[in-house]
């Protein structure tokens, strides 16, 4: 029962955060909505026996990424609203299609046999299992992720550096 209540609370919080993001007057407000959304998801992860991923969610998403967004927004001083949308067709088509997509997904999921086996919770083992799998089965993807980060770092340096006037 407690689980259902928690799910409802965090689920609602996530949805509210998400709506906050898209309704936010300016980017700074949206970033706060994003924070709520990320934190609620982190909590849901912990509920789902994934404490490690949940903590990473708090640290990386709610911590690093949101802060980075805010940092760039402050840096560029672009916390301002939007003008009139000149293409309203896009707006209505987008909303309709997104809703259609969500409805379709839910329809499929309800019709399908979704896994529901409630299994004994063993969160103590979580990190160990993840580590073992990550460094054995998923070693190559792990390395590739490392290479990706290196490339990302170089790319950022190249992009952000001011080009010398010719």
């Amino acid at each position: 029962m407690l689980e259902i209540i928690l799910f409802a609370c965090f689920g609602l919080a996530a949805i509210v955060g998400a709506i906050w993001v898209i309704l936010g007057k300016n980017a700074t407000w949206s970033a706060l909505g994003l924070l709520i959304n990320f934190c609620s998801l982190g909590a849901l992860y912990i509920m789902l026996n994934a404490p490690f991923v949940g903590l990473i969610q708090f640290i990386v998403y709610a911590g690093a990424i949101v802060v980075m967004f805010l940092f760039v927004i402050m840096l560029l001083m672009v916390a301002r609203g939007e003008g009139q949308d000149k293409k309203p067709v896009q707006r209505y088509a987008g909303i309709a299609l997104a809703v259609l997509l969500a409805a379709g997904l839910v329809y499929v999921a309800v019709g399908a046999a979704m896994p529901h086996g409630a299994l004994p919770a063993t969160p103590q083992d979580n990190v160990r299992v993840l580590g073992l799998t990550l460094f054995s089965e998923y070693l190559l993807p792990l390395w590739m992720a490392g290479v990706l980060f290196l490339i990302g770092m170089i790319a950022v340096v190249m992009l952000a550096k001011r080009k010398r006037e010719a």
């Binding site: 293409k87 896009q90 088509a93 987008g94 299609l97 997104a98 259609l100 997509l101 379709g104 997904l105 329809y107 499929v108």
Partner: peptide, 22 residues
């Protein structure tokens, strides 16, 4: 040249794929 139009294109594609699967 509008990124939003392209994103809409992606979404249309996704919905069509889902519809086809259904």
């Amino acid at each position: 040249g509008l990124a939003r139009n392209y994103a809409l294109g992606i979404l249309v594609g996704a919905v069509l794929l889902l519809a086809y699967a259904l």
